[in-house]
């Protein structure tokens, strides 16, 4: 990632609430982050931490009701995506911002061949003729490493394996030369050897095409290998943000530190017993007035129960939302 690169996507104070029977679920709370051009940003968190909902809300992909994007700004291309009309949003989605979803089987249409599905954004967004689109579709399939592209364009999704389907999804997302690609757990449904192929492909494509990528995952190993910068989410909030190396070398938030310890590895020393994080992730029933991690935290302070910490800068472009300062081992003086 080039230093001092331009910010292509800037999210400030995003807040999304789901209305359910008898209450609300505060799935995303005051989430702010930015994405620089040519950067690969990893978003890590467990299920229910709000990572997917964040990305869906900023593209207006959540059905409303039940979802309600209550606040915040999403600046892309000089516009606030939360305020623009439906038509502008439609040309942005799939055109300037590409999206790859987790499950390649359910996100491809089983009754159209993949050629049609790759050509659809080309014809809708780029105004290509059928012939032009077919040529470009073939190029795209070759780009994502599918052999025999001419023939494969006529095949249906069920004729592809899981890894190949995900390559098709990536081809569709890349069709209109997006500035930003959002990939939501794109390798979670795949085997490790296929995951390694897709990660390699993604890194290669990002370097060649120079786009910015947001990579959502729950796997710290994937992030370590691919991301330039990492955002850690817990309970609908960003709890820590840092460049990848800095985060792994010097984790500040108790959740990140616990998470790094709880994952066993295939190399290096083997622990006799796994470290665990006691308890369960929080239920986000109300607007948070306390730290979401306090019940599972080993350094919780009294104030954690009635104040929600904001993100404090700890240097090296690194910040953590915690009242406890891991560098000094003392409570923060704020």
């Amino acid at each position: 990632m080039p230093d001092g690169a331009l910010t292509v996507l800037d999210v400030q104070g995003l807040k999304t609430v789901f209305k359910i029977r008898g209450g609300e679920v505060h799935a995303v709370n005051d989430v702010s982050f930015d994405l620089k051009s040519g950067e690969l940003l990893g978003v890590v968190g467990e299920s229910g931490s709000g990572k997917s909902v964040t990305m869906m809300s900023l593209l207006g992909l959540l059905p409303s009701p039940p979802a309600d994007v209550r606040g915040g700004t999403v600046t892309f291309d000089g516009q606030d995506l939360l305020k623009v009309d439906a038509e502008t949003l439609r040309t942005t989605r799939g055109g300037k911002i590409g999206f790859v979803f987790q499950d390649p089987m359910t996100s491809l249409n089983p009754v159209y061949n993949v050629g049609m599905q790759i050509m659809e954004p080309l014809r809708k967004h780029m105004g290509m003729t059928k012939k032009q689109a077919a040529v470009r579709a073939k190029e795209l399939l070759e780009l994502v490493g599918i052999p025999d592209a001419d023939q494969r364009l006529k095949d249906y999704p069920h004729q592809f394996s899981g890894g190949m389907r995900q390559r098709v999804m990536i081809a569709i997302a890349l069709a209109c030369d997006p500035k930003v690609l959002i990939a939501d757990e794109p390798t979670t449904a795949l085997d490790v050897t296929i995951q390694a192929q897709i990660l390699e492909l993604m890194k290669d494509l990002q370097e060649r095409l120079g786009m910015a990528v947001i990579w959502i995952t729950h796997d710290l190993g994937v992030v370590a290998g691919i991301a330039d910068r990492v955002v850690v989410m817990y309970g609908g909030q960003i709890v820590e943000q840092a460049p990848t190396r800095e985060l792994f070398k010097n984790p500040q938030h108790p959740y990140t530190r616990a998470l790094l310890k709880t994952v066993p590895r295939v190399s290096g020393g083997r622990e006799e017993r796994l470290e665990i994080i006691e308890g369960q992730p929080p239920i986000l029933g109300a607007s948070p007035t306390a730290c979401p991690f306090r019940d599972r935290c080993d350094v919780a302070l009294d104030r954690c129960a009635h104040e929600n910490p904001s993100r404090y800068d700890v240097g090296n472009n690194h910040d953590a939302a915690c009242f406890y300062d891991a560098r000094t081992g003392e409570p923060r003086d704020v």
């Binding site: 050897t193 296929i194 370590a224 792994f248 070398k249 590895r265 295939v266």
Partner: peptide, 23 residues
């Protein structure tokens, strides 16, 4: 084993990877 992502960026860069082709 070489395909398992290593949750340590330092080690990750040093690792030699065998990426299998095909399915």
């Amino acid at each position: 084993l070489s395909a398992v992502p290593e949750p340590d960026p330092e080690l990750h860069d040093k690792m030699e990877r065998t990426i299998l082709t095909g399915d």
